[in-house]
Simulated assay, not measured.
Amino acid sequence: MTLPENMTAKWAAFENLSPWDVHDLLQLRQAIFVLEQTSLYADIDGKDPLAWHFLIRNRETRVLAGAIRLFTGLENGDARIGRVVIARESRGSGLGRTMMLAGIDKAEALAPGCRIHVTAQAHLEKFYKSLGFRTVSKIYLEDGIPHIDMLRGD
């Protein structure tokens, strides 16, 4: 995993996140998904306690730059990566690729040979394909935003 020198990264189960981690994670997801993308949905969905969380922070400012959540042990031993979020000021820096590669590596470490699912915003299909995902659905609206289902493995 290639991480910019001014960034730190960590994986944590929900119960091992600090109160500040949880605050910053929810704040970032709200800022991007709800406010910037004007998507009114219930971000606090009760699933965060069941997920692994990957957080990338600016080393100096401690500002959360990006995050994903990962679920393993789904049907047939599959995994799912979701809530992929990058702060506006950190976009274009390669963090999306870094986070997704970390998610793929973690999923494969926890569930060797697993298939990995993502529900992707449709405009990011080419990005996810570059990571080995293939499209397995037609475009559909989720929370008012065009999405597609993608799968890696098998």
Rank of each mutant, 00 (worst) to 15 (best):
38 T>C: 04
10 K>Y: 15
97 R>P: 02
105 D>S: 14
76 N>E: 13
151 L>P: 06
115 R>S: 10
2 T>Q: 15
73 G>M: 01
24 D>F: 05
118 V>D: 00
96 G>S: 06
31 A>Q: 11
35 L>C: 05
108 E>R: 15
16 N>G: 14
31 A>F: 02
35 L>E: 03
77 G>L: 11
5 E>H: 12
77 G>N: 11
7 M>T: 15
15 E>C: 12
139 I>A: 02
83 R>V: 01
140 Y>C: 11
34 V>R: 04
130 S>C: 10
25 L>Q: 11
103 G>N: 07
136 V>S: 13
141 L>K: 01
151 L>C: 10
64 L>A: 11
146 P>R: 10
62 R>V: 13
126 K>S: 15
62 R>S: 14
21 D>E: 05
56 I>W: 06
99 M>S: 03
93 S>V: 11
11 W>K: 12
105 D>V: 11
4 P>C: 14
36 E>L: 00
69 R>S: 04
87 A>E: 07
45 D>Y: 02
65 A>L: 13
103 G>H: 07
71 F>I: 05
73 G>C: 05
114 C>M: 02
59 R>A: 15
110 L>I: 08
76 N>I: 05
52 W>H: 11
111 A>R: 00
35 L>I: 06
96 G>C: 06
40 L>T: 10
49 P>Y: 06
128 Y>R: 06
3 L>N: 04
114 C>Y: 02
151 L>F: 13
41 Y>M: 09
51 A>F: 12
39 S>L: 06
12 A>E: 00
52 W>G: 03
56 I>K: 08
135 T>F: 03
42 A>N: 12
93 S>F: 09
154 D>M: 09
67 A>S: 14
93 S>Y: 11
